[in-house]
Design a protein around this nucleic acid. Sequence first.
DNA 1: GCAGATAATTTTGTTTCGAAACTAGTTGGA
DNA 2: TCCAACTAGTTTCGAAACAAAATTATCTGC
Lengths: 200, 200
Amino acid sequence: MSARETAELLLQVGRLVQAEGYDGELSPAQWMALRFFARANPFSRTPSAFAEFQATTRGTATQAIKALEAGGYLVRQPFKTDGRSVSLRLTSKGKKALARDPFEVLVRAMDSLDATERTAMRRALHQVLSTLATSGAHRRFGVCPDCTHFGREMCGNLPSTGPSAAECLLLGVPIQPEDVGLLCVHFQPMNEHREDGRTP
Amino acid sequence: MSARETAELLLQVGRLVQAEGYDGELSPAQWMALRFFARANPFSRTPSAFAEFQATTRGTATQAIKALEAGGYLVRQPFKTDGRSVSLRLTSKGKKALARDPFEVLVRAMDSLDATERTAMRRALHQVLSTLATSGAHRRFGVCPDCTHFGREMCGNLPSTGPSAAECLLLGVPIQPEDVGLLCVHFQPMNEHREDGRTP
DNA sequence: GCAGATAATTTTGTTTCGAAACTAGTTGGA
DNA sequence: TCCAACTAGTTTCGAAACAAAATTATCTGC
C-alpha cells in the first residue's frame, strides 16, 4: 500500500518537472539531450547512447540532436576510429543555456531537503533504477568509481605518470581525471551480474 | 552537488517509467488519466481536475478522456448540482485494465525497498512536491486526513450517524468513509498558508 | 435579466514519438 | 579479396500529445 503511494508521488514529481520543461527556449526532449551531453564522458556522447539513456529510439534521439545543432547548442565531430560514429559536444551557448535549465527548480527543491533525507533518497533511487533496469532490459548509466571496469593504478612505476592513473579495463584505454565522474554507456555496476550474456 | 545528482536520478526514473507506458493497450497520457480517475474522490473526477493534476491544459485532458470513453474504460455522468460539470467513473473494463498498468513495475520496484527507506522516500517526495507546487503555481492534490478542510465529528449526536462522520468544512458536505483516502482538488495542506489569496 | 465567470469541448498547428526503411561504415569469416 | 552480417546514424511516415485560442453551455452576482 505504501509502495503504491510512494510510486505515485514519484510519477507525479516526474510529470510536474516535465511540464516545467515547456517554458523557455527548448523543448523537454531537447533539455534532456543537452543535460545528457553535458554529463556524458567522451565514449558516450553519441546519438545511440543518448537514445538508450532516454529509453527511446535512435530516430527520435536524432531529431532532438538535430534541433540542438541547428540552434547552435551542440557541435558534432566524427570519431577518428570509427567513421560511422559522431561525438556531440556542447558549445559555449549550450553551456550557458544549461544555467537556465528549468530542471534547476528540482535541484533547488532537493536542496530544501536535509542531508540525511537526501542521501537516503539517492540510495533508494539507485536501487529503484537498478530494479527497473533489469525488469525492463534497459541499460544503466553510471560513473567510473561504481563500475566493474574501472582500474585505478596507484602511484605508477614510472615517475612520468601522475600519482594515480585511471583506466577502463573494458576498453583498455586511459581515462582522463575530469572524465571519471561522467556518465558512461559501458557502465557495469559492481557486485551485480548480467544474466543475459550481453557482455560484449 | 548531491542535490543535482539526486534530482537527475529522479528525472531518470520518471523518464524510464514513461517509456514503459508505451507498451500495451493505452498511451502514457491515457494511463495517467485512468490512474487519476481511479484515485480521485467524487468532487475531483472531472476533466478540469485531471488537467490540473497532470499539469496540462483542459483541452489536452479532454482528448485523453475522450479516447478512454471511446474504448469503454470510462463512463461519464453529469453532475446534478452543476450542469456544466461531468463526473468520470471507471467501468469494470477500466478497473481490469488497471491491473495491467505498466506503472506496476514501479510499484514492485518500490516494494523491493525496505520499509524505513520507503517511508523516508515518501516523506522526502512529499516535501519536494510541496516545494515544486509553490514555485510553479501548481495545485497540490492530497487526501482528507492531511487537509485543513477535513472535519471529523466523533460519535454523532444522532444514533443514526455512525461512530464518526467525516465532513468537508470547505464544501460543507459529508464525506463517505471510502472517499477519505482519495485525492481531492480542494486539498489544502495543513500547517501551510497560501500567499496568493487564491482561496476560493 | 444581463454581464462576467466557469466547465467542457472543438479546432488548429506544432512537436514528439515509435516503427520501419534506408545509407554508410565496420567486422568476420570463407 | 570478397561478401554477408552487423552497427551507427539518418530519414520518413503516421499517430499521438501538446498548447493555444475559439466555442458552447451553464452558472453566479448584481
